[in-house]
């Protein structure tokens, strides 16, 4: 436990010692602000019965931030340590592979959640000027943020896995972007294509990330979605631990 906490603190701290961390936060805050401006402009043009959180996902900004932030946050986790050699000093201290993977994952996830705080501010500002307080229900906000965190959790796990496999940060970034974008394309496909029966249909309905997000934004917390994200995240973290351990089988 002590090793896990120590490692998580260092990992989280290292996001903020370089300009990269702040640049990522600034870029994400900018995109979130932009998406809210666009949304509000649309709402002024034509009123809609849909909750505003759901409309948020219909803008491309959410997916853009997710796709771009994942590689940038996760690429350095393992790849940098392996390239600089500090992985050797790390793995010769009495820490387990699981502790290392979980600490790095936790740090990445915490940073990712921090990225989304500006949009919470946007919601509060909007609420201040809005006439109907029911338009922004706290329960709705909570389920929306649960969705954002679950989806982010899965993408961070993908990024961890990619970083553990890669030898350089560039390779890690490309690999995690490819993995994340593949998932995104599959979910895009499931909205456009109808496949009758077979494993293809099964696959496409399961990975419909956009549908999942819509459910969360409507305030619908579906247990199937929870299981989907949590199990997939656990699976990729398990794979990451195996990759880190593989040094000891060679």
């Amino acid at each position: 436990m002590q090793a896990y906490v120590t490692l998580t603190r260092r990992e989280l701290g290292s996001f903020f010692v370089s300009a990269t961390g702040f640049l990522v936060i600034a870029a994400a805050a900018f995109l979130q602000g932009l998406s809210w401006v666009v949304l509000v402009a649309q709402l002024q043009a034509e009123p809609t019965p849909l909750p505003i959180t759901q409309l948020f996902y219909s803008t491309p900004y959410f997916w853009l931030i997710l796709q771009l932030a994942t590689p940038v946050i996760t690429m350095r986790l393992f790849a940098l340590e392996k390239a600089s050699g500090t992985f050797e000093t790390l793995m010769t201290t009495p820490v387990t592979e699981l502790q290392v993977v979980l600490a790095k994952y936790t740090a990445a996830l915490v940073f990712y959640v921090l990225l989304w705080l500006p949009s919470l501010a946007c919601v509060l500002i909007l609420r201040h000027f809005i006439n109907t307080p029911t338009a922004l229900d706290p329960g709705l906000l909570a389920s929306t943020f649960l969705g954002i965190t679950l989806l982010g959790g899965l993408f961070m796990a993908l990024g961890c896995f990619a970083s553990a496999l890669a030898h350089t940060q560039i390779m890690a970034a490309m690999l995690s972007f490819t993995l994340g974008f593949t998932l995104f394309l599959l979910s895009l496909l499931s909205g456009r294509v109808t496949v009758a029966g077979g494993w293809q249909e099964e696959l496409l309905t399961r990975v419909a990330l956009m549908d999942h997000m819509n459910d969360f934004a409507r305030g619908l917390v579906d247990v199937r979605h929870l299981v989907f994200y949590l199990s997939l995240t656990a699976w990729f973290l398990f794979l990451t631990v195996r990759v880190v351990e593989s040094r000891r089988w060679k």
Partner: peptide, 24 residues
């Protein structure tokens, strides 16, 4: 190890504290 890898962004005392905690 050879080439003595360190975390270049950390301060000396901070790094040693981190390593000491990591070692239990």
């Amino acid at each position: 190890p050879e080439n003595n890898p360190l975390h270049p962004e950390m301060r000396v005392r901070e790094y040693l504290k981190f390593r000491a905690r990591l070692k239990g």
